[in-house]
Design a protein around this nucleic acid. Structure first.
Lengths: 203, 203
DNA sequence: AAATTTGTTAACCAAACGGTTAAACTATAT
DNA sequence: ATATAGTTTAACCGTTTGGTTAACAAATTT
């Protein structure tokens, strides 16, 4: 049953690497720290993943493959536009509570390594905006929403949902609340954000 | 006139350090690279700033002192609420074009070092939301805007303005446009964002 | 102009880093 | 039981890192 043992170790490494990389980034992460967290020898990291770069890429891709389905909830879901926005804003908060460092990690590393986006794009399941575009122009033609470019609306949805987590330390200081009260604000945003968006676009 | 020469070197170091730190972060920056960019010996960095940490803190505080006045345009300006939102969204884009890495740098390092916010907060000119709160509740009472918590509105304004730059590589890929077309989208946001916000809250 | 302080450099250092090696251990197959 | 293949470790290696030193150069002071 060496297969099981191997998979266990490999999984332990990935779990440990995910935590360290997501908190400290590629540059700030240390192989020794990952090994310690996985409770194994440092050499084992290289036995399973050859280099820091390859381990990082494994973690990054796995992180993005968790994020992509969330984004597809806006882009490729069949439900009604308003309903979709409501559902997304609600589920996204729950998602980030489960994976607090993930969106920031993905965005940060993409900023430091923009070419990396090409690798992601070529993979299947990479979210596409085309369906969403049709849905928006349909809604405009049917007189349900005011004219707006689908790209702008999509960006707005992303902004309002993702940034409160990425900008948390800054926003907490500016709004002048502690962690508990900021969490209450985030909790309220589950419904608040969808309302804010729909108010803006509905006729 | 050694004062002038000193200040020049010190300034050269700060300029170089700002570029390197903002692009690569504290963990990714190398003292040698900063020295090279400033065209001086590495030992001089330590002569003027003693350690990487202190040099970083100097850069960070200087970066934040550029950002703070921008934020105060929303929080402590005397103009009318709608006018304020319009002006801010327009001027923020210009600001980020001038300092492309700055907001991301501040937010990223605050995430990796949340205690740092305390140091910023204690300094004068740290933006405060209290005036904005009054303005919002006044506008609600006068029936100009729908009821909304000032904190939520402020967070929304921040989201819609800051995130398009921080999330640029991701958003570019999702919206499926190249840099030129993304810049056009950003250009449109100068007016689009304020419109979006005001549409949502006005009665 | 001599002395002192300030600015600058080349050479160096110890620690930390990513990565390698060779040997030991474990488990299955023969 | 023994060979074989996969797993794990301790010890090691060369390089890079932030930081220091000691000597030199330039400017100020006396």
């Amino acid at each position: 049953m060496d297969k099981i043992k191997t998979e266990n170790t490999e999984t332990e490494i990935l779990i440990a690497a995910k935590e360290i990389f997501q908190q400290k980034g590629m540059a700030g992460a240390r192989m020794q720290e990952i090994a310690d967290k996985a409770k194994i020898n440092k050499a084992l990291l290289h036995y399973y993943f050859r280099s820091k770069q390859l381990l990082f890429e494994a973690v990054f891709k796995s992180a993005f493959s968790l994020l992509a389905p969330q984004l597809n909830k806006v882009l490729n879901d069949d439900s009604d536009l308003f309903e979709k926005i409501k559902r997304f804003t609600e589920s996204y908060v729950s998602f980030v509570i489960k994976h607090p460092y993930l969106p920031n990690f993905v965005i940060q590393e993409l900023n430091k390594n923009p070419e990396f986006v090409l690798k992601l794009r070529s993979e299947k399941n990479f979210p596409s905006i085309s369906k969403f575009k049709l849905q928006v122009s349909d809604a405009i033609q049917q007189g349900i929403i005011k004219p707006i470019e689908a790209e702008q609306l999509f960006i707005n949805i992303m902004c309002l949902n993702i940034f409160p987590f990425i900008g948390e330390p800054l926003l907490m200081a500016l709004v002048d609340v502690d962690k508990d009260n900021y969490n209450k604000i985030l909790e309220n945003r589950k419904t608040e954000v969808a309302e804010f968006i729909i108010n803006s676009i509905k006729i």
